[in-house]
């Protein structure tokens, strides 16, 4: 009965949504409200107004930077939620666990990973720094760093990777995205604008564009580092939980 009801409910919702999609303005039509209201300004003036060549980055970090600040908080919040449910390791306690790699790996794999990880991280740095010119940015770069650590941890185990990125490093950096956003935002205030105005106080007019660009890059770096650390901490918390269970079982 319950199943039939939920099926019915979902079907009704699906039909409703399909119906709406059918009556929505067609995609790609230049005359739709979306295409005529806000977007033109972004496309035409983003570069001169936000001093970033990538319009997307301009919108994300500048026009709607506040939303992005919220988004990075969501990411941080995910970490906090994981730690709330799984608990965080005490200081230094992580060494106490048996160092056992989840995946038994051969020397070839080990060597390859050891060799690859620096390059992956280098690539992520490139992604982060180039976010304001080309596709990429802090989120993507952070995810790449996180991915590299996932590979590393899978192969070498928690002990090795937590020795390289200890809690001492992760704890202050986890929130770096929000912190950088806040600092840049407050800086805008000092510069005489509103919160999140990318500006340097009393900068010479000619210097301003470069400063904005650099501040944008700074935010990208903050997002990248923060995202990476959040991913790594979540990974550690989850692996640690598994090992704890493995120990008692």
């Amino acid at each position: 009965m319950k199943r039939v009801l939920s099926l019915f409910f979902i079907a009704a919702l699906g039909v409703l949504l399909l119906y709406v999609v059918a009556s929505m303005p067609p995609m790609g039509d230049p005359q739709t409200p979306t295409a005529t209201h806000v977007i033109p300004r972004y496309l035409e003036r983003a570069e001169e107004e936000t001093h970033t060549e990538n319009v997307i980055t301009g919108v994300i970090l500048n026009y709607r930077g506040y939303d992005t600040m919220g988004e990075v908080t969501v990411i941080f919040c995910a970490l906090a939620a994981v730690l709330a449910v799984l608990g965080r390791e005490r200081r230094g306690r992580i060494r106490g666990f048996v160092d056992r790699s989840p995946v038994p790996s051969s020397t070839i794999v080990r060597t390859m990973v050891r060799f690859m990880v620096p390059f992956i991280i280098l690539f992520s740095v490139y992604t982060i720094l180039h976010g304001e010119i080309s596709p990429g940015g802090g989120f993507q770069g952070g995810a790449i760093i996180g991915g590299s650590m996932i590979i590393f941890t899978t192969v070498f185990g928690l002990y090795e990777s937590s020795r390289r990125i200890p809690q001492k490093v992760r704890a202050p950096l986890e929130g770096s995205a929000v912190i950088v956003f806040f600092l840049v935002g407050a800086l805008g205030l000092v510069g005489g604008g509103n919160f999140l105005t990318y500006a340097w106080p009393h900068a010479a007019r000619g210097l301003q564009p470069a400063l904005v660009t650099w501040l944008t890059v700074l935010v990208e770096v903050g997002i990248g580092l923060g995202g990476a650390m959040v991913l790594i901490s979540i990974l550690f918390a989850m692996i640690r939980e598994e090992e704890e269970i493995a120990l008692t079982a």
Partner: peptide
């Protein structure tokens, strides 16, 4: 409060 939240893990450490 959001800023406070992100600073807390380090203080907790």
């Amino acid at each position: 409060p959001l800023l406070g939240a992100v600073l807390m893990p380090f203080l907790g450490y």
